[in-house]
Design a protein around this nucleic acid. Structure first.
Lengths: 217, 217
DNA sequence: ACCTGAACACCGTTCAAGT
DNA sequence: ACCTGAACACCGTTCAAGT
């Protein structure tokens, strides 16, 4: 016996959690994300979703929060030196993007409101201030780290050929042919970049604290 | 007298160039990009565009090529040390993203085919190889630079509030209140990041060439 | 409170028909 | 060759109607 038409079921078909789960499934499946496709997957009418969430953008922000929590896995609690915390945070973000690459293009450029994600940035900010970075520079450093993480997140989401030379090239074509492709290349580039970043932040901090603040221009 | 209905005008209404120009105008205007909106702006039916370009994606790739050429402004010809070339290239890309921030989310994650853009990456690759970076590392460095540039490009395109804490924060809220907003913050973060990147690449290169390749682990 | 179904104002793309 | 207009299969969102 099928349940026939039912205006309001006794037990709700949907919930915020169920919607978030299905949305992540949909995104991870590689199919284009959309309210209609999501409703289809939930066996429900698109308009039903609007009883629980704030439309398309609301669902996307929901996913950001959801998979941030998932990827962190308690890494938040790490003590240790500031550069270890930064590296851990970056790697956690990397894991999250790697686990759900197709989400990256969706969340890109949207204002972050999820409390958990905010808290994680807040933790980072506190760490950097405590480490001795000047207050008016910390947000810049965070933006830098963010740009770095997002850039590499997109690298993961990209079709495997980032460059597709059609004519002759002097060097690029050869390097592409020789290089490992896809995730491996991206991973190596990420590790390299993270090393460079941390290292240069340490150098900058040392320079800031060692001499008694030379004021040159 | 209006020109009434005309199946095929004597002089074509459209051309690839005219479409590219109008597309950039549309994107820069801040309105959402779309084939229909573009056709409207050109005073033409959406289907007409398909006589000249390869649909939505084709038009986007067209814009990438167009505004890359525009932003370069002959900076390609710069001689000088490799790190100057890298810095110049990055800054040119930065200018391009700054001039057309709304294009960034559109081109993100799409395979690059435009010959001019390919040539510019090729030039960068050749420069790095000539500078002494190991061949199997150059593509990683380029991916790193790219991630960096894209990340900051998106930073420019973002709504001015990247973070919107709703509750109490330990540090982040205060920093956001004190910090310069929008483009200025992004510019300073970019400059900071570029400095760090170049510096650490130089350090890496020095380390690579100075000692006779110590093999650890 | 929570779902459906109809309706609205859109998309991007294809294609026959017109000149 | 190059445009139109109709058609197709979609979007995201709103809202009255049902229980």
């Amino acid at each position: 016996m099928e349940e026939a038409y039912m205006a309001r079921p006794k037990v709700p078909l949907l919930s915020v959690d169920r919607i978030a789960d299905a949305a992540l499934e949909l995104v991870d499946s590689g199919q284009p994300f959309g309210v209609n496709a999501l409703a289809r997957r939930l066996g429900v009418t698109p308009s039903s979703l609007y009883n629980h969430v704030d439309g398309r953008d609301g669902i996307i922000e929901l996913m950001r929060g959801r998979f941030s929590r998932e990827a962190a896995g308690g890494a938040q609690a790490t003590g240790g030196e500031w550069h270890e915390i930064v590296a851990d945070t970056m790697r956690a973000q990397r894991r999250m993007y790697a686990a759900h690459p197709n989400l990256v293009p969706l969340i890109v450029g949207k204002t972050i409101t999820d409390p958990y994600v905010i808290a994680s940035y807040d933790h980072l900010a506190t760490t950097l201030v405590d480490a001795g970075f000047p207050e008016d520079e910390v947000l810049g450093v965070i933006a830098l780290l963010d740009a770095f993480a997002i850039g590499f997140g997109l690298d993961l989401a990209s079709p495997h050929d980032v460059w597709q030379p059609e004519g002759e090239t002097q060097t690029l074509g050869r390097l592409i042919a020789d290089a490992p492709h896809g995730d491996e290349r991206s991973d190596r580039a990420f590790d390299l970049g993270l090393d460079l970043l941390i290292e240069s932040l340490r150098a900058r901090l040392a320079r800031l604290s060692a001499p008694p603040a030379p004021v040159v221009e």
